[in-house]
Design a protein around this nucleic acid. Sequence first.
DNA 1: GATGATCACATTTTCGAAAATCCCAAGAAA
DNA 2: TTTCTTGGGATTTTCGAAAATGTGATCATC
Lengths: 245, 245
Amino acid sequence: MAAKSDIKGTDETRAGDVLHRMRLDIISCALKPGTRMRFETLKELYAVSFSTLREALQRLVAEGLVISEGQRGFMVAPLYLSDLQDLTDVRVLVDQECIARSILHGDDDWEAQIIAAFHRMDRLKARLNDLYFMSDEWAVLHGDFHRSLVSACRSPTLLDFRDKLFQRAHRYRRMSCQFRTKWRPKDVEHRTLMETVIARDAPAAKNLIERHIRETTENVIQNAGQFLSTEPTAFPGILKSIAAE
Amino acid sequence: MAAKSDIKGTDETRAGDVLHRMRLDIISCALKPGTRMRFETLKELYAVSFSTLREALQRLVAEGLVISEGQRGFMVAPLYLSDLQDLTDVRVLVDQECIARSILHGDDDWEAQIIAAFHRMDRLKARLNDLYFMSDEWAVLHGDFHRSLVSACRSPTLLDFRDKLFQRAHRYRRMSCQFRTKWRPKDVEHRTLMETVIARDAPAAKNLIERHIRETTENVIQNAGQFLSTEPTAFPGILKSIAAE
DNA sequence: GATGATCACATTTTCGAAAATCCCAAGAAA
DNA sequence: TTTCTTGGGATTTTCGAAAATGTGATCATC
């Protein structure tokens, strides 16, 4: 219990709605990393008042998608190489654990959901052909597939953390394919992953998910590494330098 | 980077201050688990307005210390046996990793800080004698000591997550010693832990921290297990049954 | 020229009133 | 009796104006 952060936006208040929309805009990079978030702009964009905006922003701060400093407002959390590497290591740890536990606890229905999620993802890929990984639709189905693998792990706390990490990582993936369309084909990996998990081979699955995560990160760095700051520079500096372009 | 949730309250706005105070009140169980949080009451208690309160509450929701449902307000997150067990497992995983990494990366200064933190905790214990584990002061020093062990792990994301888990777990410890003063003496464990970590014996340290966490949990369950719900009951039910007493 | 003080403007932060929603009891209908 | 409506009071949620704070330019002084 406890750490449920309704990532799907199951909150029906207006603040919950804005939170949901803002989160999508950030992880899809529609709100660019490092940009300052002015209230006048946001107010217009999301059609709500100051306080409602602030509520959503505070939540996003806690999720690591937004940064706030003192009385100087908010900004979309910048993307750093160091953050990406940190994120990658932690995701390996957490996803490995989640998968191992899911393999231990998962039932028939769990397997069925994995197969269904894979199928949906696979068919969409076939339909969209070349640029599938740019589409929002695919991002959703890809996310669903990965979540289905770990969904039987029986740890709400771990799952919630995993989801937040996945979202944070998504921003890096998303940014990287804006720069170059060279993207490692992952469909074979996904299929093998599915088969291994359903075969209940935990050690092999742990290896596969680690490779999958690490290689994707390397791919991101190759495509967009040059655009990521190496050091978390002092706040005000970044604020301008990135927001400017 | 990114997931920094200024747990120490480094935010100088009033909302940040309220967040800080509220968090302390929740993890110290001054705000009792499961109680409904009415705005009129909170407004008086923290001397701020609606919107400022809401900002803090939203943050606490993201941290798993507060629960919100639809348009029905907020409540202090209840304590569940299942949550405690989940929390325990995840803490073992995360703390083991943090300690192993700290042992790998830690320098002389890191060692010095551990020794210093242990000393402070140890002296206070001696001074307070019997009821040391009930005092807020000891809670702080005990938290500092555990954090010093993992502080060199070089993963902001993991550290931040660890801190949140530690806080959530603290509520259970805190509640348990309100019911019974029987509390397993942990000073020897702490000393061994310190020595092992500084001796850079990662496997032994991982075993020790696991035992430390799991045995503490068992102690909590023995002391207060009967007061924890076994099942996360439906929301409105709890709301009354717990808030009533 | 460099440094520091002052002030006006832009922006954020806070507040409390107004609107929206929920809760529950009392009454009507089945 | 049970189930379904209705209404009013309690509570939460939203809004935009007012207060607080940061920013940057201008000017005086060293």
